[in-house]
Design a protein around this nucleic acid. Structure first.
Lengths: 157, 157
DNA sequence: AATGAAAATTTAGAACT
DNA sequence: AGTTCTAAATTTTCATT
């Protein structure tokens, strides 16, 4: 990998993962360091790809996208070219925010975010079911969400 | 709601969702505005809760967490107090990054991120299966991920 | 609500230990 | 790797329109 994380790097990642607008100065103070080395470490973590990007997390419900649905899918064909095509098609649907190839009772697990149950129905009918080789499709409609984060507990690494 | 988004707000959200380190100045230029009103709009979007937080997105694999697993769970009891207790327990497990109550073939869908298949096995045996009233547990192990984002296509709102 | 300018703060980098 | 110091850039506030 060319670069191993030490405990300072890990602490910096933990802080930025929780609040990326925190200033380098504030992070440095929390670590008992000056800003320059902290700044350089952050740049290194970005350059090496430990930090992929910085994003604003929006409140989907406030924006009008009130429904999250997970969809388990099995395909009838499993040729490599078809799987690739399937993933490509799925990527073009703006409703889909995650697409995982999985082992278990499905081939793929999708996560999508839409306005409401009607928009979900429209997606299924006018987009998803038009894909060829589709086998079983099983939807899990989110009723409520107890936890939903991207933040990894770094104390365990 | 007290505050309706106009097209400028939506564009600002779209930009910050993609890169929250983009400067107010750069956003203002893209919109043909000066920094002040853009700055004030961003503060308003934060205050009103449209923007929940700003985070660094890490590369889980590089950090050593190479496995993502989805777990569908049914419970044997469904009293309100038990459901609440279940969610509370689940929230204490650092491996779990998402916990959704769903309708369909499961009661809950969990998403967890762990080091490897061994850590997953350990989680199941020494944490998950110790919870009472657990019914069916079905794991979907991620083989590869075609798409995984938090970014919502705002052109449709 | 937006403009333009000033003040406060942060970033980014050079020189040095 | 870290510290200190400094210049440049950005953020933030505010008087004005």
């Amino acid at each position: 990998m060319g670069y191993a994380l030490d405990s300072i790097d890990t602490k910096i990642l933990a802080m930025l993962q929780n609040n990326s607008n925190r200033t380098t100065k504030s992070i440095a103070e929390a670590l008992g360091m000056t800003t320059s080395p902290v700044f350089e470490r952050i740049k290194k973590l970005e350059k090496e790809g430990y930090i992929k990007k910085y994003v604003a997390v929006l409140d989907n419900k406030k924006i009008g996208l009130k429904l999250t649905v997970f969809i388990g899918i099995t395909l009838q064909g499993h040729t490599r070219s078809y799987l690739e095509k399937f993933v490509k098609e799925i990527n073009n649907f703006p409703e889909i925010i995650e697409c995982h190839r999985v082992s278990g009772n499905f081939d793929y697990l999708l996560k999508l975010v839409v306005e409401d149950i009607e928009a979900y129905e429209t997606f299924i009918i006018s987009k998803l079911t038009l894909l060829p080789y589709l086998g079983n499709v099983q939807s899990l409609i989110t009723l409520s969400t107890g936890k939903e984060t991207n933040e990894i507990d770094l104390s365990r690494i």
